[in-house]
């Protein structure tokens, strides 16, 4: 079995960049647990229990002599040879990696060899760490989080309040009733600060709220993007799924798939989409089962009177 089912050849570019950027020393477990050749298998057993590791490099004076794993320990237990030295059981033909290798090469090692861990050597051939599927996964997750956060932040373009155009994307989570409505509240407050006609604010806020609640109640999570300039206000609700099988049916007043729990919170009456359409000058919905739904609503702003 391939412990890390990722092949660099088929990765998105962004991910590929990560695989080349990250070096072995970035992803290895550095606090290396080692054992000497003359230690007994009993010593190894204790060490594995205490440090909760399943493979231990055999190291003396930073020099790597081999590796012993839990399988070797089981064999020693099985054949009652627990008092024999580790050197009798260790694999001395160890595949190692260098600490400045890019992660992409190490990933291919996991596919090429049966081993689940590779000791790491530095340029002076000293054992400095060990790399496992777990250490890679942990670091990759952290890096991916960081990368995603960076990309997400690019969506938010902070603009001064009196700018002619403002834009913001809100992330909306599935079933997050605690935060549901916050985006609509913020949109309403923003429009008030911009001095938009209260009647239009009301329409936009209602549309935003209906779409936000739809994301919370029905979607697997998505985004609500708000954009306002001198001429119009636009809200786009976009989710990653599950999609609507029959859009015409979903647009019918009173038709709903909401459960009782949602209804007990005062929602799921089957009025969300029709009401969002009612309060907008333009309404557009596109949906595909399995793909997701995008709803766009637009309200036109009347031309402002030129300043005297």
């Amino acid at each position: 079995m391939n412990p890390i089912p990722i092949s660099p050849e088929q990765s998105p570019l962004l991910f590929l960049e990560l695989l080349y950027k990250l070096r072995v020393r970035d992803v290895m477990a550095g606090n290396l647990v080692t054992i000497r050749r003359d230690a007994t298998m009993r010593d190894l057993q204790r060490l594995m229990q205490e440090r909760r590791v399943s493979g231990v490099p055999v190291v003396e004076d930073k020099r790597l002599f081999g590796i012993v794993s839990i399988e070797d320990l089981i064999q020693a237990l099985d054949t009652r040879r627990m008092n024999e030295p580790v050197s009798h059981f260790m694999a001395s033909n160890v595949v190692t990696v260098e600490d400045d290798m890019p992660l992409s090469i190490v990933l291919s090692y996991f596919n090429k060899y049966e081993y689940r861990r590779f000791p790491v050597l530095n340029s002076r051939n000293e054992a400095v760490g060990i790399i496992t599927a777990r250490s890679i996964n942990t670091r990759l997750l952290v890096e991916l989080f960081r990368e995603l956060a960076r990309i997400e932040n690019q969506y938010v373009i902070p603009l001064p309040e009196n700018a002619s155009c403002c834009f913001k994307t809100f992330r909306v989570m599935r079933s997050d009733f605690e935060n549901a409505g916050k985006a609509a509240t913020e949109i309403k407050n923003t429009l008030q600060k911009r001095g938009v006609d209260p009647k239009i604010i009301r329409r936009v806020a209602i549309a935003a709220y209906e779409l936000e609640m739809n994301l919370v109640v029905h979607s697997d999570g998505g985004t609500l993007t708000f954009r306002a300039d001198e001429g119009e206000i636009q809200i786009v609700a976009k989710d990653q799924g599950p999609g609507i099988a029959d859009v015409d049916l979903a647009m019918q007043e009173g038709w709903t798939t909401a459960n009782e729990w949602v209804k007990s919170l005062g929602f799921g009456a089957g009025m969300g989409l029709p009401n969002a359409r009612r309060v907008s000058d333009e309404f557009h919905i596109a949906s595909e089962p399995g793909a997701g739904t995008t709803v766009t609503v637009r309200d036109v702003l009347p031309p402002r009177n030129p300043a005297p």
Binding site: F177, A184, T185, F267
Partner: peptide, 29 residues
């Protein structure tokens, strides 16, 4: 709250027995 969102009244008082944040958010909207 879906019903409240359908009404077109100026500054109404919302009378409800729903005690959740959503009652307030709906009223605010």
């Amino acid at each position: 709250m879906s019903d409240v969102l359908m009404m077109d009244l100026d500054h109404p008082l919302l009378l409800t027995s729903l005690v959740t944040d959503q009652a307030l958010r709906t009223a605010h909207v």
